[in-house]
Amino acid sequence: MKQQTVRPSAAGPVDHAIDRPSKTGARRIRRPLDVTWLNFTVRRTGRLLVSLGVLVTASFFMIHLVPGDPVRASLGSSAPQELVEARRAALGLNDPIWSQYVHYLKNLLAGDFGESITRPGLSVSQIIGQRLPATIELAGLAFVIAMLVSIPLGVLMAALTRGGRRQRTELAFTSSSIVFAAIPEFILAVGLVCLFGQGVGLLGIFPVAGRSGPLSLVLPVISLAVAPTVVLARVVRVEVLTVMEADYIRTARSKRLRAWRLYLRHALPNAVTATLTLSGLLLGGLIAGTVLVESVMAWPGLGSSMVSSILTKDYPLVQGIVLVYGVVVLVINLVVDVVLAVLDPRSAIQES
């Protein structure tokens, strides 16, 4: 039988986007990569905008549903009623709630977060600008330490316990990681203060209040980093153990490669996807966890300002801080999705 050859047509080259016919006779059309990335970008941008809208609306109405008079709380119980009413009128708190919401959206689109009720003369943007660097420093260091400790620890535990070996070591690791992951950050912070705090702790090594230098970072950073570290270490261990059973790892092992090269060069890069996904979620949790840790440690960040502004019913400041926290978490999730799509384009194709 004479074999037929396929020649390019005069109209142009053969379209490589069409796969060969399948067993059922149907042809599967693959979409161009640029269209896939365009769909992925549109979907992610749409989700981000919807999430921002929900965040802005929820933060506004949630704060206004808190009982109490913020003006009376800021001026004190002895302030004249005329002064209170004048202040409420100046802040627009006597307007209907829908009118306040529309006014808030207009100011927000113009980049104006409003003025603090309890700190006259200071805008919310100024307060956030003063406090945000301290919170980023705290959460960023905790995240870096969690990544630097959890990945080597997870790989080491996978190497030690592979194939059912060292069951006591595996039991000790899993049990201790569950315990440390279950301890809330602020409880751990109180325990560390009682043990290592200067003037109040048994050992009295590290400062327990304020942002006074590198030593003042130790206790709050440890309080934030412990839970993410043990969680990530468990995930890395499980992923590495799964990858080690793959065929290409067996092939690499048959070439008698050194153990460190087998784990670090072949197993770890293929196990990092799930770790990266979870690390993005944990970074968002670290940002939120700074609220209580900063209050315990008297850290001059957004968290302590948020707690004090809730107690004094400072609506504009609470809304601004909640919005900043929410935007940071949303942006982190978006960045993680994009990085995962770059590392594994199949995830972008599946989303599209």
Rank of each mutant, 00 (worst) to 15 (best):
K2F: 10
T5F: 01
V6A: 01
R7V: 13
S9H: 08
D15Y: 08
A17G: 13
T24H: 12
R30G: 02
R31G: 04
V35R: 08
W37H: 03
L55G: 01
I63A: 03
L83P: 02
L83E: 15
L91R: 10
G92H: 08
N94Q: 05
L105R: 12
K106E: 06
L108Y: 09
D112C: 11
G114Y: 06
S116G: 13
I117Y: 12
I117P: 01
V124I: 13
I127T: 09
E137N: 11
L138G: 03
A142R: 06
V144Q: 12
I151E: 00
L156F: 11
M157R: 05
R168N: 09
T174G: 11
S175M: 11
A181G: 10
A182L: 10
F186S: 06
L188D: 06
C194L: 14
F196K: 08
G197N: 08
V200K: 11
G204D: 15
F206H: 02
F206K: 00
P207Y: 09
R211S: 04
L217F: 10
L224D: 09
L224G: 05
A227P: 04
P228F: 15
A233E: 03
R237E: 06
V238W: 04
V243L: 01
M244E: 02
E245G: 03
Y248F: 14
R253H: 12
R258D: 04
A259M: 14
A259G: 13
H266P: 03
A267M: 09
A267N: 05
N270R: 10
N270Q: 11
T277K: 01
L281D: 11
L282T: 08
G285V: 06
G285C: 15
A288C: 14
M297A: 02
G303V: 02
V307C: 10
S308Y: 14
V322H: 07
V324S: 06
V328A: 15
V331E: 06
V331K: 00
I332V: 08
A341N: 01
V342H: 05
P345H: 10
I349P: 00
I349V: 08
I349Q: 01
Q350T: 07
E351H: 14
S352M: 07
